[in-house]
């Protein structure tokens, strides 16, 4: 398998603080990886490093085998779903117009969207199951529907790598679960997915790997390895998350219990 994202000893300092420390990790082609960790652990910064928006002080970053800043036209092969709080929901735009923005990167400067862009936008809406909402205003959608609209925007350019930042914040649990199901469906179309989330418990049922970050990469492995690892118990940021969001709290409260034994 080829690595789609590769970080080697990445250090990031922002405003005098070390935000990421010696991060080394790989995301293989076709994997679905979630990045978990407490607030301020550097999860969003990690995505920004992969997107080339933040340049690390030290270390190497490669996306599709190249530094993110040198991606050129291949930049459009990265789909990104940002945190919704950054967006003004009273903005007078229809869902279709928002999804169409996912094509802007391919179009580049000065070129208007054409019929094929509109078709791609509608297909993306179809894929996430809200095509009938194309003509609604973005502010009229429910939390779950809006999340699907932003996912559709990221998918409109038919990306090979999908990055999501806390996509289920403010979305109810049932809608979150069906959102993860949807991501699994997208993964099957050969899309590599890296998702930052708070939702440690539920998400581990859907992803191939969990990366636990608290400035450093604490653990990175299959979900059942991560939630039972000693490293996680050491890393109290992550453990605290388990306690509070505790959908599978017994695994963390007694981290020395061998989960694999128990599961048999």
């Amino acid at each position: 398998m080829k690595p789609v994202v590769e970080l080697v000893d990445v250090w990031v300092e922002l405003g005098g603080h070390t935000v990421l420390e010696a991060i080394t990790m790989r995301v293989e082609e076709g994997e679905f990886v979630s990045v978990v960790g407490p607030n301020g652990a550097g999860k969003t910064t990690l995505l920004k490093v992969i997107l080339g928006l933040v340049a690390p002080q030290r270390g190497e970053v490669r996306v599709f085998g190249r530094p993110p800043r040198d991606l050129g036209r291949d930049r459009a092969r990265i789909g990104y779903v940002p945190q919704v709080e950054e967006i003004d929901l009273r903005f007078p735009l229809r869902v279709i117009d928002v999804v169409l923005m996912g094509r802007y990167g391919i179009l580049g400067l000065g070129r208007r969207p054409r019929r094929e862009d509109r078709r791609a936008a509608l297909e993306a809406l179809e894929l996430v199951g809200i095509r009938e909402l194309a003509g609604k205003l973005i502010g009229e959608l429910s939390g779950g529907q809006r999340q699907r609209a932003f996912l559709a925007r990221a998918l409109a350019a038919k990306p090979k790598l999908l990055l999501l930042d806390e996509p289920t914040t403010g979305v109810d649990p049932a809608a979150s679960e069906s959102f993860y199901e949807l991501l699994r469906k997208i993964q099957e179309e050969d899309v590599t997915i890296l998702m930052v989330t708070h939702d440690v418990g539920v998400v581990s049922r859907y992803v191939d790997k969990v990366a636990c970050i608290n400035r450093r990469l604490v653990v990175h492995g299959r979900p059942e390895e991560v939630v039972t690892s000693e490293a996680l118990a050491e890393m109290y940021g992550c453990a605290a998350l388990f306690f509070h969001h505790g959908r599978i709290p017994h695994m963390v409260v007694r981290p020395h219990t061998d989960f694999r034994e128990e599961g048999k």
Binding site: L51, L53, R75, A76, I78, Y80, P82, E86, I87, D88, F91, L93, V98, M101, Y104, G105, L107, G108, L109, G110, R111, R112, P113, R153
Partner: peptide, 23 residues
């Protein structure tokens, strides 16, 4: 007229515009 799409993009979602490679 020429930069309609670009101005709309940076007004609605500057972060995404940057990710998409716009100056």
């Amino acid at each position: 007229a020429v930069l309609y799409k670009e101005f709309l993009f940076i007004t609605f979602d500057p972060g995404m515009a940057e990710v998409s490679g716009f100056p």
